[in-house]
Amino acid sequence: MKGLITMDDLTNEDIHSILADAERLLPVARGESYLPLLQGKILGNLFFEPSTRTRMSFETAMKRLGGDVVNLGDVKTSSVVKGETLFDTIQMVDGYTDIIAMRHPRQGAARYAQDAARVPILNGGDGAGHHPTQTMLDLFTIQQSHGTLEGLTVILAGDLRYGRTVHSLSHALVRFGCRLIFASPDLLRMPTEIVEDLREHGADVTETEDLLGNINQADVVYMTRIQKERFADEDEYAKVAGAYKLHARDLANVKSEMVILHPLPRVDEIHPSVDETRHARYFEQAFNGVVARMALLCRLLNIEVPAKIPGGDA
């Protein structure tokens, strides 16, 4: 594996061992232990599209491990706006850095960049394509909650049509034998070709418009934001989106170990009353973005994460 462009670049074995590395790196991510594994290494952050969480967590991950970061800066003021090709931008950054994290509005941009680069590329989102580092932190959070990835029942709810995080995550969960329930308004259903592809891989997939009617079966509920702009008018949006909002009172009969995830930012699809429940896991999930990316940076830079980390309990 050179870079991480899609989850297909990782075997199940790779996933397990990277998640295990991430687990051991937790004290380092929390700042309780300093472990400069990436000292002398430079990460190039190439975000051609705005991102707060992904860009910051890459930066934090690199710095927690003693590495350094250079940023592309605002696309509006960089050479990109002068019409520089992605190929040329990559040639430059490739020479400045040891590894590149990138997000680009066009699909396929990360693969293209990897073909143009000498250093590994970490795809932080390419159009409606892939976002594998998000998938890794989602998997990490699920495994942390349930002790396993195998055989869980996972509801993915909200905008399943445009949300690239749910596409990558679905493919990954199916590789671990999870049962998937897709709960969305008809307009925002999971693309047919993805559902077909998952079923061809032997997946047990159910599509429904009813989130609350299925929530009691779930081990994991993965919520996403439904954007107003997807609907013809405000009324249509209000009518449909209400069914994909969670309130603490909806959780009365759910499994006690069920966890709720959300890639954030949320608007009002998860009511603050849920934050207080044992099921809320989205803030840990956001924090886990750092530790998952630390493990991925080490893996792609061929730096081994020690079996025992000072300050860790493992």
Binding site: T85, L86, G108, D115
Partner: peptide, 28 residues
């Protein structure tokens, strides 16, 4: 990404199946 005519890397379509022909873009 290959829609930008100035990007220099080759256009590449992978052959998934030959009969009937099915192709997939290497990049996207």
């Amino acid at each position: 990404i290959t829609q930008n005519p100035r990007e220099p890397l080759p256009h590449r379509l992978k052959v998934i199946r030959t009969a009937p022909l099915a192709l997939r873009c290497h990049y996207c």
